[in-house]
Design a protein around this nucleic acid. Sequence first.
DNA 1: ACTATTTTTTATCGTTTGATAAAATATTTT
DNA 2: AAAATATTTTATCAAACGATAAAAAATAGT
Lengths: 204, 204
Amino acid sequence: MQKKRSRIQIINQQKLLDAATEVFASYGFRGATIDQIADMAGMSKPNLLYYFKTKKEIYLAVLEQTLNKWLQSLQDWMVTGTPEETIINYINKKFEFSRDHPAGSRVFANEIMEGAPILKNLLGEDLKRLVGENTRVIKGWVTAGQIRPIEPIHLMFMIWAVTQHYADFSAQIETLTGKTLDDEDFYKQAKKTVIQIILGGILK
Amino acid sequence: MQKKRSRIQIINQQKLLDAATEVFASYGFRGATIDQIADMAGMSKPNLLYYFKTKKEIYLAVLEQTLNKWLQSLQDWMVTGTPEETIINYINKKFEFSRDHPAGSRVFANEIMEGAPILKNLLGEDLKRLVGENTRVIKGWVTAGQIRPIEPIHLMFMIWAVTQHYADFSAQIETLTGKTLDDEDFYKQAKKTVIQIILGGILK
DNA sequence: ACTATTTTTTATCGTTTGATAAAATATTTT
DNA sequence: AAAATATTTTATCAAACGATAAAAAATAGT
């Protein structure tokens, strides 16, 4: 039987999760230190370990929180109607995620570059199923002649790659352009260009 | 006056650089350990430090080797003729890099996600200049009416993002599809789809 | 206000990590 | 083959790291 979490507990756990997300985003699981996380949360190391028993435990909590947000954008995939509407809606969702959770996107990227030791199972089950559904929808559009014949999985990868790129490589993008997705004009311009190219590339 | 590098020195330094590239690719600068690198190179830790005095020194060597290869594909950008030929050639070069140097691509990605502490200066100078030249070429195509009006920098980002995605996220891609760029059919299919969509998105 | 519980701090431990010194071995030069 | 140089191994160090124990302080329940 689980005790109700106290007010302080809720506040501090979230404060730690936010700090941990930033640190893991920059340095990955192995490169991050719990000292760093504690510092960023304005807390002592043993105090952090009072809330999360091990480094791995806080990492798992961060991963879960991030993955849920990431999967959210995938799940609302099929609701709308035409291919054009659906793709635009999907790209919108992915851009929103990159703008609103850039650190989460990088945590995810780090995990995968480390070989996805934690997420591998989940990717092979839940994500695989979701992707299967989505690619079948796209395949349907192709056979119905609604879009040009393309390989659905690579279209999905393209959309993921481009949208996540703005979060994962924001340091490079900022160095080259002086802008990030927080700049609204830049955000709109990026989204517009991506939608324009991808739609133009698949619509007849 | 620099002594000539001995045969053993050349062999072992390259063996270490290759091992270091793999380890830094997985764990980034902070997460990687010189023990790991030495192990992977079949060498003892003090022996590694005989060839590279510090962890940072071997990291710099890896970064330099990687960046040179990465910049190579950018430099051959303008040689060909029509927009179509040029873009196809460029995407080809980028896909080749992702297939032939996936670890290098990830080293690069890790460095940028850590905030590009080492590469920031270089990105702000050499790369910025190269990108400036390339975007000017694309801008020229637009004003000449050779391609649809698009924002050049975002087209560049798209090409980088998609091609590098196959290297950086290969663990995810392999989990979802069972394939990597080493599979020639998969390689051709990925390249074909990307070229098809991007060209279709920018050509009139 | 007093008690029980939760939260925070202080002190510390065993490992891992990056790095050095010096001895031992192997290779090259003469 | 002997001497000189280059390479590898063994032993070790100080700092950083993840983690624990126990005391002190703060909060909540009565």
